[in-house]
Design a protein around this nucleic acid. Structure first.
Lengths: 147, 147
DNA sequence: AATATTTTGCAACAGTGTTGCTTTTTGTTA
DNA sequence: TAACAAAAAGCAACACTGTTGCAAAATATT
């Protein structure tokens, strides 16, 4: 990564933290940076690994939780019982979710992507049901892994 | 529950197990009966509780796994990182899934239902993505909890 | 009824996530 | 910039979930 890009990201990270009234700490900077550098979603395990074993497990959990609370990242439900977190482009960076996009899980590279441009379709339920939220998770092969 | 209904269910359970080439054991009978008596989905924890503390945790896990393998039940992904299992009416009892229905999670009673009549909608993805499976989970209030 | 096969229960373990508490770091105010 | 208050990190311990290997028990088969 070119040096000026890195500096830019570091500034971006600090701004993002301050904007969300979070004190700027090493772990928050590092973990947020991981999300910004990464197109897909990250599981807790990924983060521990990529952060270079520098932070305590508990710190990572608490950092992720604070990010979720502030609306910087959001969780993605998966079938395999592992929580994944994603920082969505655009709106989500501003601190409020527009979580009506679908999630895509590549069965080849095992990455999870937020497809921000694909909105969740209307679902018609039988009488008596009230809809509060619709979550769509699509499994398949992503455009990087497809021929 | 009336006595003849119970006997009927017991027979139904044995038939179902034998049809799937599973030996008829106490735990399998009891756990399968739980699914037949219950409209919604069950988490591992629910099953341990409702079975009356009679079976080892490991046995419950293995029983559920064998049911999934045989196609008697299927798993439902949830946002809260807990796997739920559901026996779907009709086709699924025959040993093969028609898992194109959506799942509904009531935020009041916390039950999960398979809405067999509601099929998953078509999802259009950007070029380059190949769809293998679409999972739709809707949160809201079920018809029992709605006024 | 005897035997082979399958399943159960137990013990131990790994992974994931949480809580309480002390030390360290961050932010603030003088 | 030094001193202080507030917040976060790190550590230890714990709870929960799920898995594996193995001996004992139950089921299926002859």
């Amino acid at each position: 990564m070119p040096k000026n890009k890195m500096i830019q990201t570091a500034e971006q990270v600090e701004t993002l933290l301050k904007r969300n009234h979070l004190s700027v700490t090493d772990s928050r900077k590092k973990i947020l940076q991981l999300f910004l550098e990464q197109a897909g979603a990250l599981a807790h395990g990924d983060i521990e690994k990529r952060a270079g074993e520098r932070f305590d497990r508990v710190t990572v959990y608490r950092t992720l939780q604070s990010f979720v609370d502030k609306g910087i990242i959001h969780t993605i439900p998966t079938a395999d019982n592992s929580v994944r977190y994603a920082l969505c482009k655009d709106d989500c960076e501003e601190g409020h979710h527009h979580d009506h996009h679908i999630h895509f899980l590549c069965i080849k590279c095992n990455n999870t992507y937020c497809l921000d441009d694909v909105v969740t379709p209307e679902i018609k339920l039988p009488k008596g049901y009230t809809i509060s939220h619709v979550e769509v998770v699509v499994d398949g092969i992503c455009k990087n892994c497809g021929t």
